[in-house]
Design a protein around this nucleic acid. Structure first.
Lengths: 122, 122
DNA sequence: AAAACATATTGACAAAATTTGATATGAGGA
DNA sequence: TCCTCATATCAAATTTTGTCAATATGTTTT
């Protein structure tokens, strides 16, 4: 059993490593087979295989085996799922930006607010 | 100097670790100060500080210091930037899905195409 | 100024991710 | 069937991340 956080992390693991970002960029040009990706990336065959597994597990890339070759391409559905997930994960659940109602403020709310805006960078 | 891939990876590092996903979820409820996050997360102070640094570096979270407290909130601009980045990164640069024009197909294209669809899962 | 407090930083360690070389698997061609 | 080729998997080495305890920094309170 995997937590919801584990599942979400799996999606974004695709985008948090440089080699995988380069692979995704290559796939933007269309379907590519493993042998071409190895050549373009300049990495070992087993390393590519490792990264492709992570990419496919994320849902962002799909593979299809044609004879002895494996072809990879960006999954339209997987990409849109990731985009939607990112949107909902960063969406505020409250109006603009509620102030922190934390305990640390309670002891002496006065001094904290003394002419100092809670939000904003100044 | 950091590569474009390094910069992009930095953004999505925010979303590829479970603790950070939980922190982001907590921030969806609005501004939170570090002391509250420590309590809710059940992690050590230095661990929280470590994760918050990564989150702030990603641009997805902003911090503001109010006296001795540090407050964190989701950055509207940072989130939208991440969403936009994700969208452009997964966008096909070619019509639907071009077939691989790789060298490995060239030797004997015939046999590969023999009644087998290149794309599609069957 | 001294004490108390919140957070950041550091160094040591543990755990997870990545790379590499070797080998296994599975498919096509001889 | 045997050989060759493409990719996957494995085990070991290496690198990167994440955690913890201790300490530093900077702020408020007294």
């Amino acid at each position: 059993m995997s937590s919801i956080y584990e599942e979400r992390a799996r999606v974004f693991k695709a985008f948090c490593e440089e080699n995988r970002l380069r692979i995704i960029e290559l796939l933007q040009e269309g379907d590519q087979c493993a042998c071409v990706l190895i050549a373009k990336m300049g990495i070992k065959q087993s390393a590519l295989s490792y990264h492709m597994k992570i990419l496919v597990d994320s849902g962002v890339v799909e593979s299809n085996i044609v004879g002895k070759w494996t072809h990879y391409h960006i999954s339209e559905a997987g990409s849109q799922y990731a985009q939607e997930l990112l949107r909902t994960m960063t969406q505020q659940h409250v109006t603009p930006a509620a102030e922190c109602s934390c305990a640390c403020e309670k002891p002496d709310t006065q001094s904290i607010r003394n002419g100092v805006k809670i939000h904003g960078n100044a």
